Simulated assay, not measured.
Amino acid sequence: MTGALLVTGVQATGHLVSQKGRAFQPGSLTIQRGETVVIVNDDSDLLHHLYVESEAFSYDSGDQVPGSRTAVTFPQTGMFQVLCGIHPKMKLNVRVN
């Protein structure tokens, strides 16, 4: 799903990903370099903490409370894995063209 979303007072166009039931939904995306992925904590009672670690790009959201939205812009091409620091089985594969 793509569209314009309001993220912490800043307008950002991005791909929407849900964190629910200890899973990213969808579990994989293909985007273009410079596009934004907006990740929403849709769990009513779970904290999440997303991060990306690679030689080309890294990101750490800090703790994400239920209902929060985090926008991540991917400035480099390549394959990236977004993980949850609290729930290690949660994985989102992002291919950036």
Results as ranks from 00 to 15, higher is better:
residue 1 M to N: 09
residue 2 T to I: 01
residue 2 T to G: 15
residue 3 G to R: 09
residue 5 L to C: 08
residue 6 L to W: 00
residue 6 L to Q: 15
residue 6 L to C: 02
residue 7 V to N: 06
residue 8 T to Y: 06
residue 10 V to P: 00
residue 11 Q to Y: 00
residue 12 A to Y: 03
residue 13 T to V: 11
residue 13 T to Q: 15
residue 13 T to M: 05
residue 13 T to Y: 13
residue 14 G to I: 01
residue 16 L to F: 13
residue 17 V to Q: 07
residue 17 V to R: 05
residue 17 V to L: 10
residue 18 S to K: 10
residue 18 S to W: 04
residue 18 S to Y: 07
residue 20 K to I: 11
residue 20 K to N: 01
residue 21 G to Q: 11
residue 22 R to N: 13
residue 23 A to D: 07
residue 23 A to S: 14
residue 23 A to I: 01
residue 24 F to L: 12
residue 25 Q to H: 08
residue 25 Q to K: 10
residue 25 Q to G: 03
residue 25 Q to F: 02
residue 25 Q to A: 14
residue 26 P to V: 11
residue 26 P to H: 08
residue 26 P to L: 12
residue 27 G to K: 12
residue 30 T to N: 13
residue 30 T to G: 12
residue 32 Q to I: 00
residue 33 R to S: 08
residue 33 R to C: 00
residue 34 G to W: 09
residue 34 G to L: 07
residue 34 G to S: 06
residue 34 G to K: 11
residue 34 G to F: 09
residue 36 T to K: 05
residue 38 V to E: 03
residue 38 V to N: 08
residue 38 V to C: 02
residue 38 V to R: 05
residue 39 I to Q: 04
residue 40 V to M: 10
residue 41 N to A: 02
residue 43 D to A: 15
residue 44 S to T: 15
residue 44 S to M: 08
residue 45 D to H: 12
residue 45 D to S: 15
residue 46 L to M: 10
residue 46 L to I: 04
residue 47 L to A: 09
residue 47 L to E: 10
residue 47 L to V: 02
residue 48 H to E: 01
residue 48 H to L: 03
residue 49 H to K: 15
residue 49 H to T: 02
residue 50 L to G: 06
residue 51 Y to D: 04
residue 52 V to M: 12
residue 52 V to K: 03
residue 52 V to A: 09
residue 52 V to D: 11
residue 53 E to D: 13
residue 54 S to M: 04
residue 55 E to Y: 09
residue 55 E to D: 15
residue 56 A to R: 15
residue 56 A to I: 00
residue 56 A to S: 14
residue 57 F to M: 08
residue 59 Y to Q: 02
residue 59 Y to D: 01
residue 59 Y to L: 10
residue 61 S to R: 07
residue 61 S to A: 15
residue 62 G to K: 10
residue 62 G to H: 09
residue 63 D to A: 01
residue 64 Q to I: 15
residue 64 Q to R: 04
residue 65 V to H: 13
residue 65 V to W: 03
residue 67 G to P: 02
residue 68 S to G: 08
residue 68 S to C: 13
residue 68 S to I: 01
residue 68 S to E: 14
residue 69 R to W: 02
residue 70 T to Y: 03
residue 72 V to F: 01
residue 73 T to I: 05
residue 74 F to A: 07
residue 77 T to D: 12
residue 77 T to C: 09
residue 78 G to P: 05
residue 78 G to A: 11
residue 78 G to V: 13
residue 78 G to I: 04
residue 78 G to M: 01
residue 80 F to P: 04
residue 80 F to S: 06
residue 81 Q to M: 01
residue 82 V to R: 04
residue 82 V to W: 02
residue 84 C to V: 06
residue 86 I to F: 10
residue 87 H to E: 12
residue 88 P to T: 09
residue 88 P to W: 02
residue 90 M to K: 00
residue 90 M to N: 11
residue 91 K to M: 11
residue 93 N to I: 14
residue 95 R to H: 04
residue 96 V to D: 05
residue 96 V to G: 06
